[in-house]
């Protein structure tokens, strides 16, 4: 226990950050059929990029279609109901890119089966370009041992670090849970708090919104501990 009644972890939380570079695959689709065919074969890092980069691009406010696939299908192909289906795939339900790809391909293939005749070809310049994301993960100097230190760093750390520990760790690195919840539970024994953090739907929050909510949850818990301790 620290002097304020907060548990002090023996294993600290080390904040990493993640930045990415976009690599072009040279693949492009002009209609839904080509789109699905490419989706089946592209590296997982392409699926990851197009379903996640908007989170880092729009940290304060989110556009209507929350990923590139849904945006292209809705706005360019003008297939609104299909776009909505892709937009509403609950990414929280997936713990691997492989499974996510399968789901997207299944939704699109089913649609193609039923609508093959009226396949729309987009104009030149409106093609979908498949891009992949190269992640660079690097340690930051921030290392924390208790909730107070944790929340203090959360308030000031780069948003890319929060992104890394929330999204990349859970889905791309297939840990199944975000790093914050994992540490809070395993190293501080704060199971309820860990669950509350894990329950926040990161895909319908903006990055800054997510930061604020996590800080609120942790600050609240610190107050509880201080009152009871």
């Amino acid at each position: 226990m620290s002097e304020l009644g907060l548990t002090r972890a023996s294993e600290p939380f080390r904040f990493s950050t993640r930045v990415h570079l976009r690599e072009l695959t040279g693949l492009r689709a002009r209609n839904l059929f080509e789109f699905v065919e490419h989706l089946k074969k592209v590296p997982g890092s392409v699926i990851y990029h197009h379903t996640h980069h908007y989170l880092q691009q729009h940290q304060y406010q989110m556009p209507e279609a929350p990923n590139d696939f849904a945006y292209w299908i809705t706005e360019i192909l003008q297939e609104r109901s299909l776009g909505e289906k892709i937009a509403s795939i609950n990414l929280c339900d997936f713990t691997s890119i492989r499974a996510l790809r399968e789901e997207i391909v299944t939704v699109l293939s089913n649609y193609l089966e039923k609508n093959r005749k009226k396949l729309r070809e987009v104009n030149e310049g409106e093609e979908f370009h498949f891009v992949k994301s190269i992640s660079f993960v690097l340690p930051t100097p921030y290392v924390v041992y208790d909730l107070r230190e944790f929340t203090a760093v959360l308030k000031k750390i780069t948003i890319h670090s929060i992104y890394f520990h929330t999204f990349e760790a859970r889905l791309r690195l297939e840990k199944g849970i975000n790093d914050f919840s994992h540490w809070v539970e395993m190293s501080l024994g704060e199971r309820q708090l860990a669950e509350k953090i894990a329950k926040l739907d990161p895909y319908t929050n903006t990055m800054e919104g997510l930061r604020t909510k996590m800080i609120q949850l942790i600050d609240l818990r610190i107050k509880e501990i201080e009152c009871t301790g």
């Binding site: 930045v19 570079l21 590296p43 890092s45 190269i134 660079f136 993960v137 690097l138 690195l173």
Partner: peptide, 20 residues
Amino acid sequence: LRDYLLLFLSLYHEGDIIYL
């Protein structure tokens, strides 16, 4: 500027997830 730094680094690392 960040992209250029990453570009230089990408020349020396393989894979889609790079731990620096």
